[in-house]
Simulated assay, not measured.
Amino acid sequence: MVEPDLADLKAFVSVAAARGFRNAASRGGVSASSLSEAIRRLEQQLGVRLLNRTTRSVTPTEAGQRLFERLAPAFGEISTALDAINLFRDSPTGTLRLNVPSIAAREILPALLSRFLAGHPGITVEVTSNDTFIDILAAGFDAGIRYDERLERDMIAVPIGPPMQRMIAAASPAYLQQHGEPRHPDELVWHACIGHRFESGVLAVWEFTRGDDTVRIVPNGPIVASVIDIQLRAAVDGLGIVYSFDEFLRPALDDGTLVPILRDWWQSFTGPRLYYASREHMPAPLRAFVDFVLRDNRSRDAG
C-alpha cells in the first residue's frame, strides 16, 4: 500500500471536523475541489470509503470516524508544537479568527485592531460579524465577543471596549411633530416602531427600565431590518421610532436629525466580553490579542 500523504490526511481531518467540504475550505483557505481530490486520493490509497457524501451533509463512515479519532489529536499536537515556536519570535505569526456582533464590528474593533496589528505585523485577523450566539469552536473561530447573558459557563471572558453601554430610543423631529412624543413606553403600542430582526429570525423586543419597573414592547411598524443603516435612515426620514445602541444613534442625535425620547427609561448594561475556551496551550495569535486587550483595559482604567 502506498504511504498516504500527510497533506491528504490533514485534508481528511479538516473535512471530517467541519462536516463539509465548503466549511473546511473556508476555514483552511483552500478550494473545496482540492479537498475533494485529496479525500478521493486518500480513499483510493487506503482502499476504504472514509466519508459519506450527500447533497446536504458529509459524515464519516465507521472507518472514517475511527481514523478521525486517532488523527485529530495527533494533528492538534503538531499544531501546538509548531505554535510554541511563536513564543521565541519578536512578534507571533498566524491567523486569529474572531466572531463578533455587529456593534463590536462597527464601534469597538476597528480602532482596537489597528493598534493591535501595528504591533503584531505577523498576525492576520479574520473578523466575522454575527448577532446570534454560535459555538465558536465548532465553527472554527478562536474567540468571540458577546454580552454576559450570552456567554457559556465554561468560557474565559475578559472585558473589551466600553465598560458600560445602553439602548436608547429616538425619532425625527418631523415624526414627533406629526405623531406626538410618547411619555411612557406603554404608549409605543400606538406608534410606528422600526424593528430589528436577528439572523435567527427572532424579532428583537424593546426593553425599558426605570427603577424596579421594566416594560417590554414588541415593535410594530412599517419596516423591520437586520441592518442598522436601514433602521437609522427610516427613522431620520420620519417613518417611525428607532431603538438601538447609543453608539449607533449618537451621530444623528448630535446633529439633530434624531431626537432622544423616553430618556428616563433608557437601559444600561455591562459592556461586551472577549471570550474563548479554557485550554492549556493557547494559540500564539490569540494569546497576543488577549494580552493586548488586558493591557488596553488597564491603561483605560488608569486614565
Rank of each mutant, 00 (worst) to 15 (best):
P73I: 01
F141C: 04
F133A: 15
L109S: 08
E126F: 01
R53V: 15
N99E: 11
N86Q: 12
L87V: 06
E126Y: 04
R115D: 14
V127C: 10
F116S: 08
P101G: 01
T59E: 15
T93C: 12
G119P: 06
T80L: 08
N52F: 12
L71R: 04
G64N: 05
I85W: 13
R40C: 03
T59V: 15
I123S: 06
S36A: 14
A32G: 12
D142P: 01
S33P: 06
T55L: 12
L42A: 03
R146W: 13
E126L: 08
S129I: 07
F88E: 12
E62V: 09
I123T: 05
V127T: 10
H120W: 07
S31I: 14
L67D: 00
A74F: 14
S129C: 08
A72T: 03
N52R: 13
E77P: 01
E126P: 03
E69Y: 04
D135M: 06
A74P: 00
A74Q: 07
A72L: 04
L113P: 07
T93S: 13
L71G: 08
E69W: 03
S36E: 14
S57P: 01
F68W: 07
D83L: 02
A38C: 02
I108V: 15
F75I: 04
L87R: 13
T132Y: 11
